[in-house]
């Protein structure tokens, strides 16, 4: 049986982790490669790097981080942030990424999803969707897609976009609730469920995890195949293996 995935996410800016960790010694505190190694040892099922600066110079930095991580951690890596072209996807895959996540560029140019899937297979194209609750009547699902790291409203319905992204070739969707991100109030189950029941590809839910029950709800109620979290792991509130033990005790299929 397929195991549910626990995926720590490292937001990287200028080559450093920014939802930082302040509980280990300062030298390595923000080093993404060192943090990746810790998560690997804790039994993470996959790692996610999101480059939140994504300028040209930083692209090299990100490739270097992916490269160093792949040299040391023999686990799946998903990388995103500023991916705009097939060339960007190829260079990330060559650096050691297994899947590449596309967000704003896919909204601007949906053909990029298809091009990426045709070249590298749809299993390696993840479309990341940042969604926020909307009262706008043209947004039927009640969730609007935002681009550019959540800064630009698109007037696109999140469920419609999810379905379209899959039909264009996305092999997985990473759904972030902007309302819940960083709040520790739990995943937006309604959003996760709406999307997981509308498409047949795996869904990774992100944004808002604060306690063990949130993980359980994300899988059981939300229908997610993977759950992504940043701060609860960075700040040491939970160790990944402890979370997985708890999930196992509740009868959920996890890899221990």
């Amino acid at each position: 049986m397929l195991k549910l995935r626990i995926i720590p996410c490292l937001d990287v800016k200028n080559g450093r982790v920014v939802k930082g960790i302040n509980f280990i010694d300062l030298i390595d505190a923000g080093d993404p490669v060192e943090q990746a190694k810790i998560y690997d040892r804790q039994g993470a099922d996959e790692l996610c790097f999101l480059d939140i600066t994504a300028s040209v110079e930083n692209r090299e930095l990100l490739l270097d981080i992916v490269n160093k991580t792949a040299k040391n951690c023999f686990m799946p890596l998903t990388v995103g942030g500023g991916v705009k072209s097939v060339k960007d996807i190829r260079s990330l895959l060559f650096a050691g990424a297994d899947k590449v996540s596309i967000n704003s560029a896919a909204i601007k140019n949906p053909k990029l999803i298809t091009k990426g899937a045709n070249n590298f297979g749809n299993q390696c194209i993840v479309v990341a969707i940042d969604a926020k609750i909307s009262k706008n009547s043209s947004i039927k699902s009640g969730y609007e897609v935002f681009s550019h790291g959540g800064r630009v409203p698109t007037n696109i319905d999140a469920v419609d976009w999810a379905k379209r992204a899959v039909s264009l070739g996305a092999g997985e969707l990473l759904i972030t609730s902007m309302d819940r991100d960083g709040t520790k109030k739990g995943f937006d189950i309604n959003l996760t469920k709406k999307i997981s029941s509308s498409v047949s590809v795996p869904i990774i839910a992100s944004g808002g995890v604060g306690c063990i029950k949130d993980f359980i709800d994300g899988f059981q109620e939300g229908g997610a195949s993977g759950l992504l979290a940043a701060s609860v792991f960075h700040f040491g509130k939970f160790k990944i293996h402890d979370v997985k033990k708890e999930l196992k005790n509740k009868g959920l299929p996890v890899r221990i």
């Binding site: 397929l2 047949s200 890899r255």
Partner: peptide
């Protein structure tokens, strides 16, 4: 049994 596709993740 309508598993999600792609098959992504860890299996025994």
């Amino acid at each position: 049994s309508r598993n999600r596709i792609p098959n992504v993740g860890w299996r025994p």
